[in-house]
């Protein structure tokens, strides 16, 4: 089960209303390489992992991504909370406003809603971990683009934190990948027909 803790992982802050920035940052909430996709991808891949380290890493990183989703939501919420209608229109956020007011919704930067085809759960653990490593890199790139677009130094600091986390997660998935290679190289030996490793050692 999951338990909610009444604190953010990182003290997300913004300098002031900025609907233009909110319009692009929201892609890390409900976009293809966003935190919702990341979390659901890892949490749904856990079940078919053959080794304990992989199950643990996917559970822990998937849970952390939920915390990141909350950080991104906080950014977006605080960037549009006090924005005036005029600001929203000027920022091109009026089409979003027409459907959602200032509420949070899972869309990418151009307004397309989140879809499950953003993620994959292939059943082959090696393939799934590669998918995750690619996902971390895609999210890292997205945060880099968002940092370039940001004109709010406080929001940029928060984006930087999330950016760095992608690198750490990439490292962990890389280690899981190696553990899987190790696991399968051993597995392979023992599964060969008519081969008894103990008998082989004695001879």
């Amino acid at each position: 089960m999951w338990v909610y803790q009444k604190s953010l992982e990182y003290p997300a802050r913004v300098r002031g209303p900025n609907p233009r920035l909110a319009k692009v940052v929201i892609t890390q909430y409900g976009g293809p390489d966003g935190e919702l996709a990341a979390s659901l991808r890892y949490l749904t891949q856990r079940y078919t992992m053959p080794i304990p380290q992989a199950k643990a890493a996917l559970t822990d990183i998937g849970t952390e991504e939920l915390a990141h989703m909350e950080i991104v939501a906080t950014l977006v919420y605080q960037l549009i909370r006090d924005a005036s209608i005029e600001d929203i229109k000027r920022a091109g956020l009026d089409s979003y406003y027409a459907d959602h007011d200032k509420a949070l919704y899972f869309v990418n930067a151009s307004g397309a809603p989140w879809v499950a085809s953003y993620i994959q759960s292939k059943g082959d653990p090696i393939t799934d971990i590669h998918e995750n490593m690619a996902a971390e890199e895609k999210a890292r790139s997205t945060y880099e683009y968002l940092m370039q677009l940001s004109d709010d130094p406080d929001a940029t600091e928060t984006l930087r934190f999330l950016w760095q986390r992608e690198i750490v997660h990439f490292q962990r998935f890389g280690e899981v990948l190696d553990l899987l290679h190790d696991y399968y190289s051993r597995q392979h030996v023992f599964e060969m027909k008519g081969y008894d490793p103990d008998k082989f050692r004695q001879s």
């Binding site: 990182y10 945060y143 490292q171």
Partner: peptide, 17 residues
């Protein structure tokens, strides 16, 4: 502040694309 406890994993974000 930096986003990791491990100094060997820290990087500097690129300023430009």
């Amino acid at each position: 502040r930096l986003g990791t406890l491990f100094p060997e994993l820290t990087r500097t974000p690129p300023r430009y694309k």
